[in-house]
């Protein structure tokens, strides 16, 4: 694996995470519990779509086969997608969405903070933009998780249930592979081990303020980064890629 191939893999993974998150967030459009929150959720979806666009565009350039960001988003199949599994899980309710977004946005905040000093100029530039977005997403979802966790009995129950369900998918965020290691040595990628402590600290503080208990930690899922996904991703892609696949010659 060359460094360029490793970087392609890395950017695709970050891009896929953004893209699949944006898909799930956008599903909330016209479905939020209050109108003001409808705006907030679509805003996050827009940030993520924009981020996916930049990352996949760069990945396309690195691959050197003339692929655009749309080619990568709309013409790859499930095994070629490398997002973490947590991104593709369907939203049970608003608590699930807020807890997931807290977990992933907190991770992304620390990740992109570190990537702002990447030796790769493009990655650093994308990170500089992403870190601002992630900081806001983290603040917004932290506030909501505390409100819901420390709200009514029902909201507390739903928040706890969401964390229990999502927790076994958190470890995968910190997984590394050969590409990571190569890029880390070159100062391009971020060291996720260093991020872990900051992430845990913020999640625990929020959890405590929300009066939610720590789920048991006996099993962790994995596979997304290696292209082995949940059944849900197939449905996301068949919906998202429908027009591009049904009319392959059309320009949109």
């Amino acid at each position: 694996m060359t460094e360029q191939q490793a970087l392609y893999k890395y950017c695709t993974q970050l891009g896929d995470n953004a893209l699949i998150q944006s898909y799930r967030l956008a599903e909330w459009c016209s479905r939020a519990p209050i109108l003001e929150e409808d705006l907030a959720l679509t805003n996050m979806a827009l940030d993520m779509t924009g981020r996916a666009q930049l990352l996949l565009q760069y990945a396309g350039q690195l691959a050197g086969k003339g692929q655009t960001e749309d080619d990568l988003a709309y013409r790859r199949s499930e095994p070629e997608y490398s997002n973490s599994l947590i991104m593709e899980l369907p939203d049970d309710d608003f608590a699930f969405t807020m807890v997931r977004q807290l977990l992933t946005s907190t991770f992304e905040y620390f990740l992109y903070s570190a990537l702002t000093s990447s030796t790769d100029k493009t990655v650093a530039a994308i990170a500089a933009k992403a870190v601002k977005e992630a900081k806001y997403h983290m603040a917004h979802t932290t506030d909501w998780v505390i409100r819901l966790g420390d709200g009514t009995d029902e909201s507390s129950r739903r928040t706890q249930q969401a964390l229990n369900k999502l927790w076994p998918y958190t470890e995968e965020l910190f997984e590394t592979d050969d590409a990571h290691k190569m890029l880390l040595a070159a100062g391009i990628a971020a060291d996720v081990n260093k991020i872990k402590a900051s992430w845990s600290e913020h999640i625990n503080a929020t959890r405590t303020a929300a009066k939610i208990t720590m789920p048991s930690d006996d099993y962790q899922h994995s596979g997304g980064t290696r292209g082995i996904h949940t059944e849900y991703l197939g449905h996301i892609l068949s919906e998202m890629q429908y027009l591009q696949r049904a009319y392959p010659d059309a320009k949109w």
Binding site: L19, A26, C29, S30, L46, T49, A52, E239, Q244
Partner: peptide, 19 residues
């Protein structure tokens, strides 16, 4: 049509508009 928007650009524009 949000989940089926045929390009990333189209999806952003549509999302921004509905928003």
């Amino acid at each position: 049509w949000i989940t089926r928007a045929p390009s990333l650009r189209a999806k952003q524009i549509l999302l921004a508009k509905i928003q």
